[in-house]
Design a protein around this nucleic acid. Structure first.
Lengths: 210, 210, 210, 210
DNA sequence: TATGAATGAGTCTTCATTCAT
DNA sequence: CATGAATGAAGACTCATTCAT
């Protein structure tokens, strides 16, 4: 609109075009997998919803599984970032264990609240290659290590087996959160749920070792 | 053609035979689904392993999904029975909360330790019809109701929102137990795991309400 | 039609049925490959022409290539039998070299005259697995060995390197015969062709060594 | 924009550039077809190896088959030239029939020894249009005519049906030579092979008519 | 003219399901 | 009721070819 002479009058430069296509495919795949599941979500459905030809899909992804895998990687990435955020926020200055757990649970709920069905498809229905499986285990392990360090640095924590505690904490939060988000209609408010979960973890961690 | 003597002197009455066939099919389906997953476990595989023709399978089951559904129902049945056992055992006479939780967690671990892969397939890979979904929720709700009653009757319990507590307890035990059984290689022994889980629940329930 | 009570009133016993289907598929495959070549001859074409469903084709053949392979095996079988016939006929009693060659060339022409296009497709267009390749080489080698023995037993033969001679003879007959049959419209009668070919071989073999 | 000076001072005139491109494509096609066969050698492979875009390939060739056809024409051209060379060399002055055949066979072996796989692909895998088929027959016919003339001019030749003889000679040399080059592992040296083949032809041609 | 992203008809193949025997 | 050969809809994927830039 200004006076700058467009050197490249293409609306979308070539390179951009493919990125747009790839993103459209991934977005479509997310929607299709979410609504139909992995097995019933065909590559033709995905291409159609993305508004591209089936050929374009296979130009950018070697096969159906790889589309799902990219989605999984994205999901793991987001999870890792969120987790890092929480840790960063918490690491700045001393916080009470309650505050830390509160942040943690809050972030987890938020994360799972987004697209729970898609996450389920991605995590349970997609056949995970060995690498993907290992990557996912690795991501969880990293979370457990981080939590363990958090526990170590907190004077309120009184359980002795911190590895076991980290295992319990991470998996409890993960699983309960997921369950809460999926098990939709409840007489249990999100606020209440978070409070109970934090309470449980807090009492567990601050209790004398068994 | 002679007298009244049965023309077909089979040892097992008609009804028996079909029961045997149905059981064979279900057993075969369990094995096939366990080893190959739901999608890759074909009805022909099942029939073959059951030692019956594919036609017979469709004599007793309208489609593939219904085979899986019966397996799911069986699984829920077993779970309910186990749960009832625990409740019965506990209801006889007063027990400490720790003992109750110990029984509960112990039973759950035992239950999940049996055929975790099949359970995963049944619970996560099989597409659940709305009815099945509701049935499963109903079963869980029943468990929660029972747990709530248990909590009500225990003087040690100090949380106030017993519904929320029951929700937390049931789902935590369920999810953590499953995760523990599936997430195989660990430096965490089953004994230790149970102890930690029970400790967490115990402290949660016996703590003052939040 | 007689009085024999048919114990099995099926028109075609079960086992026969599948044989009929398989034969229909093979016959159809031969026709389809002959008319469209291997690459353009689709399994759907074959099934359609055979009057069976595509599913039936894959019930009896694991993939497209295996259909062609069975055709190739049949072809090799026929070739081996024809060759054995010629050898048998010739081995009975002493024959002049001319007679032997005459039989040989005659049989070869006859063999190649049948379905030259299909043979070409089978031999040149179908991707040969290593085993198939070896099998084909083996068959040819057997022919060469047999011819060599024939040459050894003929007093008229004067070439010294009988292995080389057998190689030359077998391949010349094979190739020329094929070429003759394929290179259709000629001013060269089949009779004349055979005569010339036999003459060439005869003079070659009965000439003094080079 | 200045004076008459070429606006586009490229070193290679337009026509040259396309010739270079076309040659690159043909060379690439030869390599790709040789290594992957006709069906599996995609136009994208060819363009990529040629270092040009797929669009450029279709700028110069209407379709995949036409690329192969140009390669076939080249091959025929080379064959014709080689053949002409042999004839020219031989036509200078009188030669013994043995010498002539020796030259002929030698040239043929040499020719087939170069790129036997590519030749096979070009001759057997590429679907030949009617025109191409006719062109190939024409080329062979020309060879046969030339050979017939050669035979006519040789006093050593004693077969009477020179057309038939030319047919036999040309095809025998062609086919046997090809077979020899392709049927790799042998206890038959190239020298020996050539000697035997020449001997056969010599005896055939110098023998009294049948 | 060159480019290469996009196209989509067309392959092979699978597997739940039917039905004649 | 049992059987299992037959069915065919549907899916993943390829690649020659086009055309907007």
């Amino acid at each position: 609109m200004a006076t700058k002479k467009a050197k490249n009058p293409r609306k979308t430069p070539r390179q951009e075009r493919s990125r747009v296509t790839v993103d459209a495919i991934l977005e479509a795949a997310a929607q299709v997998f979410e609504s139909r599941g992995y097995a019933a979500g065909t590559t033709n459905h995905i291409a159609e919803r993305a508004g591209v030809s089936i050929g374009s899909l296979y130009q950018y992804f070697p096969d159906k599984e790889s589309v799902a895998n990219v989605l999984i990687e994205r999901h793991m990435q987001e999870g890792a970032e969120l987790f890092a955020d929480v840790l960063g926020h918490v690491g700045q200055q001393p916080h009470s264990l309650a505050t830390v757990l509160d942040h943690f649970v809050g972030a987890m709920v938020e994360m799972h609240a987004k697209n729970p069905r898609l996450q389920h498809v991605l995590l349970e229905e997609v056949p995970h290659s060995h690498e993907m499986h290992e990557a996912m285990r690795g991501e969880k392990r990293k979370a457990m290590v981080a939590v363990k360090m958090l526990l170590e640095s907190s004077p309120e924590v009184r359980v002795t087996d911190l590895s076991a505690a980290a295992y319990i904490v991470v998996n409890t939060v993960e699983a309960l959160t997921h369950e809460f988000v999926v098990g939709a209609p409840h007489d249990l408010s999100r606020r209440r749920f978070k409070k109970e979960l934090v309470a449980m973890l807090l009492r567990y961690l601050s209790g004398a070792s068994v």
